[in-house]
Simulated assay, not measured.
Amino acid sequence: MILFTGTGALSAEFAKYYSCKIISARLLDDIQLAEAIESCNIIIHNAATLSAPNIETFVESNFLLTKRILDIAYKINSQIKFINISSMSILKTARSYLDTTEMSHYALSKFLAEIYCLNHPMKRLTNIRFSTIFYKDPLRDGLSKLAHDAFNKKKVAIYNNGENCRDFIPINIAVKYLYNLVNQEDYPRKVNIASGVSHSFRHFVDLILLQYPRTEVDDRILETNEILCNFSEDTIRTWGELYSGIDMEFLHYLKTIHEDTDL
């Protein structure tokens, strides 16, 4: 049995395709958590807090919770598979960390969790960092919002001519790669799941304009934070190409918005 430690988009999407159990680990005491772990042989630790008022809350929610779950799991079954959903926000490059002084409070808490996992005696353990996930939900990511605004508002906002780039991976593809990893026997301690190809937001605006030529583009000048988008194609080489590319996924999402509105 595969056990997810948190509710949310990733576990919900995974459950559409594969059998799993989803709990909210932070709401359970140690005895309840141990009972949940005893019934599984794979833990995907996805519980995380993305927004908090201070660093103490981030550390408690993202580091100490990870430590608690991992330590309990190890005592119950040292051979259990443990997958920690880490974060690309801790990375400077695909293979190196940011200096801790450059990390946000969220990133620092995820960094502490990853380092603890890396040094843990649990043998079948890995840390996964996804590149930018295309959730297909305008409340969760900028690419989805771009598509929704184009259709519903006939207007999209971009910054600095949309020059910022991302390595987008659709959430449905992300969970397929995650499932492939679950079934591996040899676990690397760190894995980046990414397409290896980056695209600018301007690229997607151009795709929108091909579909909806009358869309107004509001180009704003704004200082933005640089987001890591240069990953290798290791994911593709290791597990194969599982989809036809982000352009096709984005255009299909645009079509879905149109069809849902017609209904």
Results as ranks from 00 to 15, higher is better:
Met88Glu: 15
His105Cys: 06
Ala94Gln: 13
Pro121Asn: 11
Asn161Phe: 13
Leu70Val: 09
Ile128Glu: 11
Glu102Phe: 01
Leu70Thr: 05
Lys67Gln: 14
Asn127Met: 07
Gly162Asn: 06
Phe63Glu: 14
Thr66Ser: 14
Thr100His: 10
Ser78Thr: 02
His105Val: 00
Ser61Tyr: 02
Lys123Tyr: 02
Asp99Pro: 03
His105Tyr: 15
Ala94Arg: 03
Cys165Asn: 05
Ile80Tyr: 04
Arg129Met: 12
Phe58Ser: 00
Ile128Cys: 02
Ile128Trp: 04
Leu70Pro: 03
Thr66Val: 05
Ile169Tyr: 03
Arg166Ser: 06
Lys136Asn: 11
Ile83Leu: 15
Asn161Ser: 15
Asn152Trp: 09
Arg68Gln: 10
Thr57Ser: 04
Ser144Phe: 05
Asn77Ala: 01
Glu60Asn: 12
Lys75Thr: 09
Ile90Arg: 04
Asp99Ala: 05
Ala113His: 14
Thr66Gly: 09
Ile76Trp: 02
Arg140Asn: 10
Thr57Trp: 00
Glu114Asn: 01
Lys153His: 10
Phe58Thr: 00
His105Ala: 08
Leu50Thr: 09
Asn77His: 04
Thr93Glu: 15
Lys145Val: 04
Asn84Cys: 09
Ala73Cys: 07
Phe82Cys: 02
Ile72Trp: 00
Glu56Ala: 01
Lys123Ser: 06
Leu65Ala: 12
Phe63Ala: 08
Leu118Phe: 12
Leu112Met: 15
Asp99Asn: 12
Glu114Asp: 06
Ile169Thr: 04
Pro121Asp: 08
Lys136Arg: 13
Thr132Gln: 10
Phe130Leu: 01
Ile128Met: 09
Leu143Phe: 06
Leu118His: 07
Ala107Glu: 12
Ser51Val: 08
Lys123Pro: 00
Asn152Tyr: 15
Ser87Lys: 01
Lys136Ile: 09
Met88Phe: 07
Ala157Glu: 15
Thr93Gly: 09
Ser144Glu: 13
Asn54His: 13
Phe151Tyr: 14
Ile80Trp: 08
Ile169Trp: 03
Ser86Ile: 01
Val59Tyr: 14
Tyr106Asp: 14
Glu102Ser: 08
Arg140His: 07
Cys117Ser: 04
Asn164Tyr: 06
Ile115His: 08
Ser104Cys: 05
Ile90Glu: 09
Ala113Ser: 10
